[in-house]
Design a protein around this nucleic acid. Structure first.
Length: 602
RNA sequence: GGGGACGUAGUUCAGUUGGUUAGAACGCUGCCCUGUCACGGCAGAGGUCGCGGGUUCGAGUCCCGUCGUCCCCGCCA
């Protein structure tokens, strides 16, 4: 391998095969860096020593594939290259074979500046030759392997489930596959193997996992691809804590595989708390929480503030703190709230911001100190007070969420100053995990005017909330229904503000499952027609069970320090869900369509 | 569906107030060079300024449309 030679090998014969990474032609002396996935080695062609082979080497160009036979030699001290692992040796070429030539590539893998992503994706095979991509793909392999090994050792079976299955209720849009044998009918690609893994529990495979591709036809983001890989698992008879333990176990193994020792158990926080403190159900714990400072106002100044901002006297006032943002000009301060997700979410329309410390000190001199103290503000920190406009129809949670977005926008803008997103080498700081628990069971869907399952309709609820469920059947089309207060036995694992995975304890009794469908405004007949097979299965002795699924791509992305899933997926799709290399999707022939009984509207 | 950024040589970019022949670096071609390692030196080739339309005496530059890539909102049980 091209990255393997060491001083101890000097004098040995070696055969290296790989690409010409760089050539340095000094005339009678030619150096070639030969590269494969393991690294690079310098090969020397000396005209004096061997004119024939030297002449052949003159014809070498970037990205030619060659085989070199030679003798490894320790370099003399002042010619050592400390930048590469093989820098203390070189290969004295004795035989050179050109295995294949290369056209001039649109860009070179050895180039330090990246071409734009369109180019990288179109010529992905060249892009993947680059060090970082080779590293990321290797990392992905190691992480997946570590997880497989861990789960297998814990008694989990990896079991495959169908890709061609039936369209699932609710959730994301399905990718559909037309049936030729039954024209007009379609398979759907799984958004997740949810029902199959529950069926596996009913089938007695009490510990299941699968590293499996899932498909969702929704718009893409940097951390969302239409096909992505989940670490999916399910087990019988667990408390949530047991599921968390398994996840913490395989994440420990996965992080160890990439050289990081993480600490378990992860901290836990309820959904309500996460919303109040971070304005998000996936809090980024690397940054300070938001603090409600309303009680730190003096009574008089609270009145004054409420009047000035036209809010009721018991207003919620969140202080968002960005540490060490340093001096910020008035002009810059006025742009707060005009960029990023906060502006996009129309936060400015119902959230008022106060971000001028001088003005605040002037108008509320007696409250300043207690407020800054309550929020832990230190010199050099940027802080913004956010209050909800009185006439707003937005819910308290929407207010928290919007403030949470502002918190992230600001943190991103001043990342270079506070440095909380930079890797320190200390896993306890670099990787802030948290379990978010007790999600709401249902969420109101304004468009369809009914309640939806927040997680999915097979999620269990807290025993104590059962009464609320049973008393709410008359209010299933009321946005103020008590359904909104029911807590699910659902949990997310979050890392640095990214949702890694989501799971729950499932419903294992048919009578409770029916009640959930009723709450979702579904009649018995509708439920039967949509997943009758599943309801029937529940009636044949279903053990209590629960599980979770984690995004492998996201885990690897964070470990790789990448900003996009495309850096850890060999063949990803663009924001318009196009594969630029193979040019998919494409129209298909009339004949193909006809066979499937499909007519395309133009 | 909506908002924003970008699109100039093979690649990464610069291109002033609209003004004569559109530049640089890397890559490419040729020549020189025996210790380079992002080798160096000399010479050279390489451009439908994404595409279409408009304004203008004159458009890479201004306007409209369109296509593509990226980021975000909506969406993502």
């Amino acid at each position: 391998m091209c990255g393997a030679l060491r001083p101890a090998d000097s004098g040995k014969k070696a055969v290296l095969m790989g690409w010409v990474n760089r050539r340095r032609d000094l005339g009678n002396l030619i150096f070639i860096d030969i590269r494969d996935r393991s690294g690079v080695t310098q090969v020397v062609f000396n005209k004096e020593r061997d004119p024939a082979i030297h002449q052949k080497a003159e014809g070498l160009r970037n990205e030619y594939v060659i085989a070199v036979v030679g003798t490894a030699k320790q370099r003399v001290p002042d010619t050592v290259n400390k930048n590469i692992a093989t820098g203390e040796v070189e290969l004295i070429a004795e035989e050179l074979r050109i295995l294949n030539e290369s056209k001039q590539p649109p860009f070179l893998p050895s180039e330090t500046v990246l071409p734009n992503e369109e180019m990288r994706l179109k010529y992905r095979y060249i892009d993947l030759r680059r060090d970082t991509m080779q590293y990321n793909i290797e990392l992905r392999h190691k992480v997946a392997l570590a997880i497989r090994d861990y789960l297998s050792a814990q008694g989990f079976f990896e079991i495959e489930t169908p890709f061609m299955t039936r369209s699932t209720p609710e959730g994301a849009r399905d990718y559909l596959v037309p049936s030729r044998v039954q024209p007009g009918s379609f398979y759907a690609l799984p958004q997740s193997p949810q029902m199959f893994k529950q069926i596996l529990m009913i089938s007695g495979f009490d510990k299941y996992f699968q590293i499996v591709r899932c498909f969702r036809d929704e718009d893409l983001r940097a951390d969302r691809q239409p096909e992505f890989t989940q670490i999916d698992l399910e087990m019988s008879y667990p408390q949530p804590e047991r599921v968390w333990e398994v996840v913490e176990g395989f994440l420990t193994a996965a992080f160890k595989a990439s050289g990081h020792e993480i600490k378990t158990p992860f901290p836990r926080m309820s959904y309500d708390e996460a919303m109040r403190l971070y304005g998000s159900d996936k809090p980024d714990m690397r940054l300070p929480a938001m603090v409600d400072v309303r009680s730190a106002f003096t009574p008089e100044e609270r009145e004054k503030f409420a009047a000035a901002f036209k809010v009721s006297p018991d207003f919620t006032s969140l202080l968002i703190r960005i540490p060490k943002a340093g001096d910020i000009s008035g002009t810059e301060r006025r742009t707060i709230g005009t960029y990023g997700a906060f502006a996009h979410s129309q936060g400015t329309s119902f959230v008022s911001l106060m971000s001028d410390p001088n003005r605040f000190a002037r108008d509320y001199p007696n409250s300043l100190e207690p407020i800054l103290k309550a929020a832990g503000v230190e010199a050099g920190d940027l802080w913004v007070l956010a209050v909800r406009k009185a006439d707003s129809r937005q819910s308290a949670n929407q207010f928290y969420q919007t403030c949470g977005q502002l918190r992230l926008d600001l943190a991103q803008k001043y990342a270079a100053k506070h440095g909380f997103f930079a890797k320190t080498g200390d896993p306890a700081k670099d990787y802030r995990f948290i379990w978010v628990t007790d999600f709401p069971m249902f969420e109101w869907d304004r468009e369809s005017g009914r309640w939806n399952a927040a997680h999915h309709p097979f999620t269990s609820l807290h025993d104590e909330d059962m009464a609320k469920l049973e008393s709410s059947f008359d209010t299933t089309s009321d946005p103020k229904s008590a359904l909104g207060e029911i807590r699910a036995l659902a949990y997310d694992v979050v890392l640095n503000g990214t949702e890694l995975g989501s799971g729950s304890i499932r419903i294992h009794r048919q009578d409770i499952q029916s009640k959930i469908f009723r709450a979702l405004g579904m009649t018995e007949e509708e439920a039967r027609s949509r997943f009758g097979f599943f309801l029937e299965a529940l009636e044949y002795g279903t053990p209590p069970h629960g599980g979770i699924a984690l995004g492998l791509d996201r885990i690897v992305m964070i470990l790789a320090g990448a900003d996009s899933l495309r850096e850890v997926i060999p063949f990803p799709k663009t924001a318009r869900a196009v594969d630029l290399m193979v040019d998919a999707p494409t129209p298909v022939s009339e004949a193909q369509l006809k066979e499937l009984g499909i007519e395309v509207k133009k």
